[in-house]
Design a protein around this nucleic acid. Sequence first.
DNA 1: GAGTGGTCTAGACCACGAC
DNA 2: TCGTGGTCTAGACCACTCC
Lengths: 236, 236
Amino acid sequence: MTEPRYREIKRSIVASIRSGMLKPGDRVQSEAEIVEQFGVSRMTANRALRELTDAGLLTRRSGAGTFIADAKPIGHMIEIRNIADEIRARGHAYRSRVLRNDAIKADAKQATLLDVRVGVRLFHSIIVHHEADFPIQLEDRLVLASAAPGYGETDFHQQTPNEYLTRIAPIARVEHRVTAALPDPEVRALLGMQELDPVLVMDRRTWSGDRLVSHATLTHPASRYALTATFEVKLD
Amino acid sequence: MTEPRYREIKRSIVASIRSGMLKPGDRVQSEAEIVEQFGVSRMTANRALRELTDAGLLTRRSGAGTFIADAKPIGHMIEIRNIADEIRARGHAYRSRVLRNDAIKADAKQATLLDVRVGVRLFHSIIVHHEADFPIQLEDRLVLASAAPGYGETDFHQQTPNEYLTRIAPIARVEHRVTAALPDPEVRALLGMQELDPVLVMDRRTWSGDRLVSHATLTHPASRYALTATFEVKLD
DNA sequence: GAGTGGTCTAGACCACGAC
DNA sequence: TCGTGGTCTAGACCACTCC
């Protein structure tokens, strides 16, 4: 019934990361230090650190120590790295155009998307992300106001909604739905597309804890964007 | 330098699964039995079984035993379950139409796709997969003949190429690329699509061991098919 | 009641890294 | 040299399942 010791240790370290107390590259306690702090045997300390390492949160170097891993691929496929990082990783300039970021009350359709009642307070943002001056993603996002009170005042030229949300509300679950479509004229104009050029549409729902906190529709010109995803089967 | 004991135990169990000796639902050795067979301590046996459980290959029931897990989502997102399973899971009839399955020698383009030299022996299959009599996927696949010698004689009405390949060559790595397009008239006809209806195209490359063994282009009518993928962050 | 997994301990030996 | 992680042992107690 009581929580296992190794899990308590894991939670403690995860909490330090989430609170921002520990940042990528920082050193965490050695096994010996955990043995002292928590009064456990070394095997238990080792298990906690090893499991967090397997999960990708830590990296260990024998002889040196255990450190917070940088970046978080946060998934093996369709990485949730935000579009800005993705663009910069390709060596291109990133720029965004914020079309709106309003506080609203959910209408029937929006309430369905976020699984809340009509009238619940939301934020609604629409942003066009550019890669080297070409629009590459139209992001239409709904955010539960109670989960992200400061969303409406955030300057999304400085950081993407994705970055903001992952900072204030740790992601517990993400669901994607990907399909193809022909864009309506408005979307086509916003993305600077030719007629008859299809779009790749990704609907992304994000949970924090048990709560569905955000729904985003990400629309990309197929001629300029493809999703890639790799999965490795590792058995050792 | 020498292989850790827990990894040796894991390899032994994985080998039993791959060889077909152990099937989903079968019981594997208990920790006590592994202690005897391998002459290790129980902690070492436990680690081997626990890691294979975390990896999804086994399931454990305290008091009952350790068993081979069924199915293999083989990834947390864009599951590699083949299209036939996917259709049947939705409660629909699955049917396939095999348009070709030929032994060929790689031309320049095919050689590039599979990263081999021109002239290497390949199989080339084209199959249309139907859900409840509606075409839902056009599968155009190249397979390295040396990795799957029996591919050309396999009846792909009985099992999908995916099923066949995963059985004879354990998948080590999968890479996806997803994009949207407007189909050319031939593809449109094969998939029974309206004009101006876009397709969702997934290129999938599959490695077994270090070898790239297959390249498949999977084309879906956007009106009838969407990719979905979920990722859960679990920290315990 | 016998067997199973889940957890934990208090030691141990080793290779490696930093100093 | 000393601290680090990587591995392993031979016990232990418990809750659970199956018979």
